[in-house]
Design a protein around this nucleic acid. Structure first.
Length: 269
DNA sequence: AAATCCTGCAACCGCCATCTT
DNA sequence: GAAGATGGCGGTTGCAGGATT
């Protein structure tokens, strides 16, 4: 399901990421943050382009990225937001904590696009005839729709077992920084994650072999700016009893208003 | 069992916006 | 204000694995 690794003319690797590369990137960003995506691969010991590193981090490695198993609520929100915003995947992703724009885009194209079309056409039919629209649909349409409905039902069953908490709960308790804010927060995650140490320990040994000393002019200003205040304490903005504070909302008021508006418009189930 | 088709998703590419010099 | 550098976004592609023939 992934591209086979290869090298471009500059000798930079392309294609699927190996676990070792993941570990290196994760360990580096957790330690130093991503101060410059273009330069980062050099310092992290990766033969990748900066864009590739950024994408890998944003879509796969960064903390709190939810994977798979979209809830019905999430799907409804995506459809609603897509109606309102169009293909503004990053804007849509900003309203769905833990979901990346790429993932939402993929999910839209593979699952929701069809469903959205069907909803729209059903609405139009209902408006034009005012009667049961199912009778007029073709066999092929019906089969397609039935399959989709079965899929939805199956998903819901799984979700009810595994993920009882819908999006509302995650919004309130599982605050996710926007992609731009991740930039400055990633380093804090690194320092604060504590129990969630990922493969840091494993990777640091290899990291040390190439990493410049801490006095390196690239890293030092970054560390000073983002990790600590003048007293070498962690920034009080992010620390609360050793965790990222849930009370500093990563969303502005407009975002939250918009989201609650969308949620209110969802049909009560 | 083999061949072909289909699906899902990770990753790449090119463009545009913003920032820096 | 211009030019270059960088980050971010959306569209698209490549490919593994499952489904179907």
């Amino acid at each position: 399901m992934v591209r086979t690794p290869c090298f471009d003319k500059n000798g930079r690797k392309k294609g699927a990421w190996s676990p070792e590369e993941d570990n290196k990137l994760r360990a580096y960003i957790q330690r130093y943050g991503h101060w410059n995506w273009r330069e980062l691969p050099k310092f992290a010991g990766l033969s990748r382009c900066g864009k590739s590193c950024r994408l890998r981090w944003m879509n796969y490695l960064r903390p709190n990225v939810k994977r798979g198993n979209y809830t019905k609520e999430e799907e409804d929100i995506i459809i609603k937001l897509h109606e309102a915003l169009g293909n503004k995947w990053s804007a849509i992703a900003a309203k769905l904590p833990g979901r990346t724009d790429n993932e939402i885009k993929n999910h839209w194209h593979t699952h929701l696009k069809k469903r959205s079309k069907q909803n729209k056409s059903a609405k139009i039919k209902n408006q034009s005839t005012g009667t049961d629209s199912d009778r007029s649909e073709s066999k092929a349409d019906h089969r397609e729709r039935s399959t989709e409905m079965l899929k939805c039902e199956a998903n819901q069953e799984v979700e009810s077992d595994d993920q009882p908490c819908p999006i509302l709960e995650s919004s309130a308790l599982f605050q996710e920084p926007s992609s731009s804010e991740i930039s400055s927060l990633s380093s804090d995650y690194a320092m604060l994650s504590g129990g969630v140490n990922w493969a840091l320990e494993d990777s640091l040994s290899s990291l040390d072999s190439f990493a410049e000393p801490i006095e390196n002019f690239w890293t030092q200003p970054f560390l000073a700016d983002t990790y600590c205040d003048d007293e070498n304490n962690f920034s009080s903005n992010f620390v609360e009893g050793g965790f990222v504070s849930p009370f500093d909302s990563y969303y502005d008021d407009d975002s939250m208003d918009f989201l609650s508006q969308v949620l209110q418009e969802l049909p009560k189930s």
